[in-house]
Every structure is written in structure tokens, then in C-alpha cells.
Simulated scan of single mutants.
Amino acid sequence: MDTNMYRYITTVAECKSISAAARRLYISQPALTKQISRLETQLGFKLFDRTKTPLSLTSAGELFVEFADRYVKLENELTNKLRLLDPSKSAVVTVATTPRGGTYIGPSTASFLCHYQGIQLEYMNVSANECEAALEDETVDLAVYTDPVISNQLEYMPLEEDPLLLVVPRNNILLQGKELSGNSLSTPLMLDPLELQEHRLTFILSTPNHSLYHAECAFLSKYQIIPAQSLRVDYVDTRYSIAAGGAGIALLPAITVSRISLSSDAVFCTIRGSNLYRYIVIARKKGRALSENAELFWRFLIDRRFHTHSKQE
């Protein structure tokens, strides 16, 4: 039996969907369906009850997954121990990150190094454009940054939604007559999109070299906002300070705002009936054969994202 089948079956069991499992395994759905059917024929019994949604395991399937899960864990343990015996397997994995991408993968680093002892990680903090250039030039193995992914030479997977907030100074005309008590990062003020089309509003915008620039452009386009006045500022902390200081409105990552929000003159807002967010993604160059260690890091982050979302549900 192809040992990959153990991973295929356990992944389908976790996802409760062949299409979702195929995306996670980076293979096509028809190919995965064919592999499962072939294994069921070989074993002589069905592993999944396809009459139910979501997909469920048969009794035989539950037994198979129990033993397959043990095998996968043993294989990982064996691979890790063999890697420790061979220093040549400890090649450095280079990862380009933006400040936001680095904040995301920081908490995952210790867990990865604990699972895969001997692997060395090297993080480079650059802009989103530089992440893509480094991937194209193959000067890094992977990159973690925020969408959109501009280069058509890259493939990527979303890791997490990155919520955005509007930071509005308390004295802004947009807030006149509104109840602001209780405003916080977790309870932002709901605004109607039409209110943001007020011609007297000033927007504090990022410069084009930042990935947030694309999120701002998408935001302005979606809600048909044409700023009559704007100020472009490179550094995100400075944009917050300028907005909180009364000069205008800024669209900023919620996690950044939570880190630097000190001013009582800042009001946190969002759009009524809509969620403001972008995605944090992990990207690689299409067609490039990565080292075993880089592949492990790619899969680790994606699997971690999947398991985190499963626990939240």
C-alpha cells in the first residue's frame, strides 16, 4: 500500500470532505477520489459513508483511521530522529515576512522547532513586494505576508483572516451626534458606507510599497469613496498617531491598533453589515522543488491553520 494513503484517509476524516481534503493535500479532488476508491477495492470494504453530509466514517473506516493515525505519528517520529543523525538534513529554511506576517508566525515557531528538532529557520523582514521578488529570485524558500499575491509565478494558501478597523479621531465630523460610550476594539462603532462618502473627510493612506495599500484601494473602490483630501504615510504606527491626533481617518490592522492604541481621542469603527479584513498567506514559487525541511514548514503552518479553525468551530 502507498504510505501516502494513510495521510490521505486521515485528512479526509478530519476535513469531513474530499474536496476540502484535496485542497489541504495539494492534489486534485478527482485524483483523491480515485485513490480512495482504489484503496477501498483493495481492502474490500468502504471507509466512508458518502450518503451523508458532511462525510462520515464507516465502522471499518474508524478502525482504519485509528491505526493510520498511529502510523503517521510513528513515521514523523522516525523521520525526526533520522534527521538528527544526519547534519546534512538540517539545511536552513529561509522565510521572508512582512511585519504582519512575522507577527503571525511568531507564536508558531517554537511549536515547529519542538516538532522538528534540528531544522533551522531564518526570517527576513521585508515589504510585501520584496517578499514576492525574493520568491521569484529563489533567494528565499517561502514567504508569509498579507494578500493580494500579485505575482503570477507564485502559489499560496491563506492562513488567517487579518481584521481591519477604521481609526477615526473623536472630533471628526463623521462622529457628530453619535453615541461613543463603550467604544473599544471589540465593540467598534458601526458606520454606514454612505457616511464615508462625505467630501470633507480626510483619509490617512499607506504608500504603494505596503500590502495595506491594496486593502485600502479595495476598500475605497467597494464603497465608492473618492477622498477629496488624503495624506500618504509610510509607517503604520505614524498613520495611527496622525489619525488619533485629529488629522483624518485611517484603515489599519486590528492587531496593530491593539498594540499601539494609547489615545483616548481615537474611535474604532467598522462598516455596518460587513467585515473588514484581508488575508495572511504563505507563498512559494510555482514549480520550484523545495527542500524537505521547507516542505515541512509549509505543511506545518497550513495544518496548524486547519486545526486552529477546527477547534474554534
Rank of each mutant, 00 (worst) to 15 (best):
L194Q: 05
V92L: 11
E136C: 09
L212R: 07
L164V: 03
L142D: 01
L85I: 13
L47G: 09
C131T: 06
S206Y: 05
V267T: 14
T51Y: 08
L174K: 04
C114T: 15
D234H: 12
S127Y: 11
K311E: 13
P227H: 04
E195S: 05
F300S: 02
E161G: 11
S90Q: 12
A60W: 04
P253D: 11
G44C: 12
S28V: 10
M1C: 12
R23H: 08
L166H: 04
D137P: 04
Y104S: 00
L39D: 07
A228P: 00
I36Q: 05
M157T: 13
R38L: 13
L220Q: 02
R239N: 03
L185P: 06
V149D: 05
A31G: 14
L165T: 06
D141L: 03
V168E: 00
N129S: 13
I204Q: 01
T238Y: 10
E136P: 01
V92Y: 08
S28I: 08
L175D: 05
V126C: 05
L43M: 06
N171V: 11
A250M: 08
L113I: 13
C15M: 13
N76C: 09
M1I: 10
D237S: 14
L276W: 01
V168Y: 02
S28Q: 14
L121F: 05
T94S: 12
K222L: 08
I280E: 00
G287E: 15
R83F: 04
I226R: 03
S151M: 11
H199A: 14
H214V: 02
V126W: 00
K178N: 09
D86G: 07
S291A: 15
K81P: 03
G61H: 03
L57Y: 07
A68G: 09
G287V: 14
S111P: 00
D162H: 06
L85Q: 09
G246T: 07
E295R: 15
S221Y: 02
Q312R: 14
T202Q: 04
M157A: 14
N125E: 09
Q153L: 14
H199P: 08
L142A: 01
L84I: 12
S127I: 08
S263Y: 10
C15F: 07
A20R: 08
L201Y: 00
T187K: 15
L166R: 02
L189N: 04
D265P: 02
L55H: 07
M124Y: 08
H309R: 13
K16E: 11
V236I: 13
Y240G: 02
L231A: 05
G273R: 12
F48T: 10
P188Y: 04
R100D: 02
S263V: 06
A247L: 15
L180E: 07
T98V: 04
K46Q: 14
V233S: 04
L231C: 09
R232W: 07
Q153M: 15
Y6W: 15
P148M: 09
E136L: 10
A247G: 02
K73W: 08
I27T: 15
Q176T: 10
K285Q: 10
P188M: 06
I249Y: 01
S151D: 14
E138Q: 14
I204A: 04
R50L: 13
G245P: 02
S221D: 09
